[in-house]
């Protein structure tokens, strides 16, 4: 495949992920993740570095797919006051560059800008991040095997969850 083909495939997956979040189709979103996927939002240190080892350093979010499923259940269960009503969001994905790092494995970098409108407070927050996805071919689909989300503006307005970033 050419670089353009690969980047086209990757952009399609990332855009579908963004659309699933914006339309609050969280089960569809979850379904895009491989069963052993890791979703990681490292924290920053006061020395200006991102944490690099989630076993010994702090993350904002470090979840397996099973824990992402718990988060979806929490949001949809209606028993979290921070998650209801859910904010309306627009996930914007851009600057997509993909490389095939192994047969059937794409490493994709992108920039994510997410606007979230808090219906209760009538406030809007914006986060922006440098994102890395690993996509793995499974049968006819490209699944997200790993997502690392480098949050650039880590001064969080009240709260943050998988659907606000």
């Amino acid at each position: 495949m050419s670089g353009a083909d690969i980047t086209g495939i990757a952009a399609r997956v990332l855009n579908e992920e963004a659309r699933a979040l914006d339309e609050q189709r969280f089960d569809d979103w979850l379904d895009m993740y491989a069963h052993d996927a890791v979703f990681w939002v490292p924290a920053w240190t006061d020395e200006g570095r991102l944490t690099s080892d989630p076993e010994t350093q702090l993350s904002l979010i470090h979840c397996t797919r099973a824990q992402l499923a718990e988060r979806v259940g929490r949001v949809e269960g209606g028993r979290s006051q921070a998650s209801s009503p859910l904010p309306r969001t627009a996930h914007i994905v851009s600057n997509v560059i993909a490389d095939e790092i192994a047969p059937g494995v794409l490493r994709v970098s992108s920039v994510a800008t997410t606007h979230a409108f808090n219906i209760k407070r009538r406030t809007t927050t914006t986060t922006f991040a440098l994102v890395e996805h690993d996509l793995a071919r499974e049968d006819e689909r490209w699944l997200i095997a790993r997502k690392t989300f480098r949050l650039q503006n880590d001064y969080i307005a009240t709260m943050m969850d998988f659907y606000t970033i």
Partner: peptide
Amino acid sequence: RIRQYEEFFNPSGLATPDDANA
């Protein structure tokens, strides 16, 4: 320790967002 911390205490966790909302 770190996983329990993140889940409970982070504003991106499963408990503190509900406190802050309150």
